[in-house]
């Protein structure tokens, strides 16, 4: 019985991350950013970052060098071909969550 309980505990621990809720910022990313900056082969933001910064910096969700304030600044002001996102479309609260998700 003890063995069974221990096995269940190990199993639960193993699968727990899969059931953990996505961080709020991921939800914002998936709604607002993924079409340009997602992993799809034709995502224009990802393709342009691959050209200008290299493949290792193409996907925003895998970047380790983005500051939270930088994320917030770019979203509100735009960068090159990327337009700014207005606060009625992407609220301050959502932007903060996005910065937490993408920024380091």
């Amino acid at each position: 019985m003890k063995l069974l309980a221990a096995s269940v505990a190990v199993l639960l621990a193993a699968i727990a991350p899969a059931f953990a809720a996505d961080p709020p910022g991921k939800k914002v990313f998936d709604r607002q950013c993924v079409y340009c900056h997602g992993p799809a082969i034709d995502a224009p933001g990802t393709r342009q970052l691959a050209r200008t910064r290299g493949n290792d910096k193409a996907l925003l969700t895998e970047r380790k060098d983005l500051g939270k304030e930088y994320v917030q600044y770019v979203v509100r002001h735009g960068l090159k071909s990327m337009p700014a996102f207005a606060p009625a479309d992407l609220s301050d609260a959502d932007l903060k969550a996005l910065a937490e998700f993408l920024g380091r």
Binding site: A43, Q48, M82
Partner: peptide
């Protein structure tokens, strides 16, 4: 719906 077409903005750089 997509945003793929915006790739053309990068043709010559500068984004406009």
């Amino acid at each position: 719906p997509k945003l793929t077409e915006f790739g053309f903005l990068n043709w010559a750089g500068g984004g406009g």
